[in-house]
Design a binder for these strands. Sequence first.
DNA 1: AAAGTATTTTAGTCTTGCCTAAATTTTTTG
DNA 2: CAAAAAATTTAGGCAAGACTAAAATACTTT
Lengths: 223, 223
Amino acid sequence: MTETITQSIQDYLKHIYELNENGGSASTNDIAARLNIAPASVTGMLQKLSNAKPPLVIYKKHQGVTLTKNGEKAALEVIRHHRLLESFLVNTLGYSWDEVHLEADKLEHVISEDFEARMAEALGHPTRDPHGELIPTADLTMPLDKSRPLASLRTDETATVKRVSDDDPALLRHLHEIGVIPEVKVTVKNYSEFDGNITLQVAGRKSNVVLGTVITNQVFIEK
Amino acid sequence: MTETITQSIQDYLKHIYELNENGGSASTNDIAARLNIAPASVTGMLQKLSNAKPPLVIYKKHQGVTLTKNGEKAALEVIRHHRLLESFLVNTLGYSWDEVHLEADKLEHVISEDFEARMAEALGHPTRDPHGELIPTADLTMPLDKSRPLASLRTDETATVKRVSDDDPALLRHLHEIGVIPEVKVTVKNYSEFDGNITLQVAGRKSNVVLGTVITNQVFIEK
DNA sequence: AAAGTATTTTAGTCTTGCCTAAATTTTTTG
DNA sequence: CAAAAAATTTAGGCAAGACTAAAATACTTT
Ligand SMILES: [Mn+2]
Ligand SMILES: [Mn+2]
Ligand SMILES: [Mn+2]
Ligand SMILES: [Mn+2]
């Protein structure tokens, strides 16, 4: 009697996955905040998911949750849908990178595996979405992410932008404007000890830009 | 306090629209059969839809339902989504015409108006879907359908196939095989009084085909 | 026109997924 | 380390949308 994975459950699993990526286990409150749902409701769902057969999360009272292998597969399935969809919308329907997130958030639960496969094929089996986020493989493995925040660079260091956080459309528009997009080379011309500001030279741009930590913590680079 | 039009409601309205197209009002049982839902459940929903503000259907006990203007607009919105999606899937992802229906049935409830507009643009504002069905216009008007069943043709009459019924994938594959697809010219070489069989010459095909009424009633032509 | 059949409606339940208010547990702080 | 604060869970409810069984209504047939 395998648990039916509803849209709602898919959303829980997806967000738990992302929270697990950072710290260890995902807390009730964090999940609630992300899903815009009352914490009490989250507790109820966590109990349900951990009692499912097979269990989708590991849950002990007051200690947050971790995904089981099954839960992780289900999460990666949704994340693969989401990121392929974002790529597809940009490529095929001319969406800009700040417009795709909401649309993909709805479609990700609804497309068939056939649709997924056809998108991947049409896009040439991409490894990253328009924001540079890694796309889980068809067999649901998440590639290793070697990037770190731009905020961790210091004066005279050079690196390549690999991905940017995609949940704030306004930030995305701004980054696009100043040319800070995946695969672009950047050099730190100055790092300020006091406020953490980074003066950045962006390849192909005349003038440098000064970025605060709110931004430099949402841009990820590799050297 | 306008009624929220859920996915479920959209499905009811869509099928009521299609039933209204044939006979007058849609019966509880017919709606139930189409939606694969118990008749008792349908009664409940019809009451709800007729009490909505504004009402989406006109309903009197034991007399079936008709859509109001508001209900019709909502239905046409979904049907436009559905048919544009079918076209889009065929054009962009290489689906064949017998594969698109199920996928479109899920996506139709989820895409944004922006998505709809972009598809229409990308497809060059088509007026018919892959099965030849008319696509409601952007301002939600259904173009007039002048076609009639192939079954109504008699010996020596010539006509153009305009559309075919799209709910049986096996029939669609068969029709494709024998070349009976929209915009193809056909001539009735013989009509049998007894069983209604039609011997059809299909433009560009060597040998004629004999079609029974099950098929000829699901193929629509214009002279 | 009465009886039988088919259709539709009513009545009563169930599941999912959410909510608020109140309790409980954990963490932080003075 | 005890009190205050924050986080989490329990308890009790609600709305949507489905189901089954039984009652009511409408249609057919003799
Ligand atoms: Mn996204
Ligand atoms: Mn993304
Ligand atoms: Mn269809
Ligand atoms: Mn169609």
